[in-house]
């Protein structure tokens, strides 16, 4: 393993992404992908920069070769049991920004989801 390619699960996630794109190309009958919009939540176990770094390499030789990956950042949302209100958090382990409680129930922000693709 060279220092320039550390092991990272974003490579696997990119492979999952490109496999999904190839399945979509088969079922929806398109031949080339020009752009992909991917929603990534702030609480997802993925680093957007590492996705961008890996995407071009993984897409090579596939229907997605040369396409642009656009990442849509989705904020983390949780329900504060103490305030009885939804709050925004940026990572697991953040306290409620209003009351400081850690009794939070996640509502949104763990997704890694393809939203739309530009194809021909």
């Amino acid at each position: 393993m060279s220092a320039s390619t550390p092991p990272m699960h974003e490579m696997s996630l990119c492979e999952g992404l490109v496999q999904s794109l190839e399945e979509q190309a088969m079922t929806q009958g398109f031949h080339k992908i020009f752009a992909v919009w991917l929603e990534i939540g702030a609480l997802a176990t993925v680093e957007p920069d590492a996705m961008l770094f890996n995407y071009d390499i993984v897409a090579r030789g596939t229907v997605a070769e040369g396409s642009k990956l656009e990442i849509i950042a989705v904020p983390g949302k949780a329900w504060c049991m103490n305030c009885s209100t939804p709050v925004t958090i940026s990572r697991h382990g953040d306290a409620c920004p209003a009351c400081g409680s850690y009794q939070l129930q996640l509502l949104d922000g763990e997704q890694m989801r393809i939203k739309q693709i530009e194809v021909a």
Binding site: K32, R113, I114
Partner: peptide
């Protein structure tokens, strides 16, 4: 190329 947008909702961990 003529392109079109395809809306999909798919988790990449699917």
């Amino acid at each position: 190329p003529v392109t079109r947008m395809v809306q999909i909702e798919q988790n990449i961990m699917a």
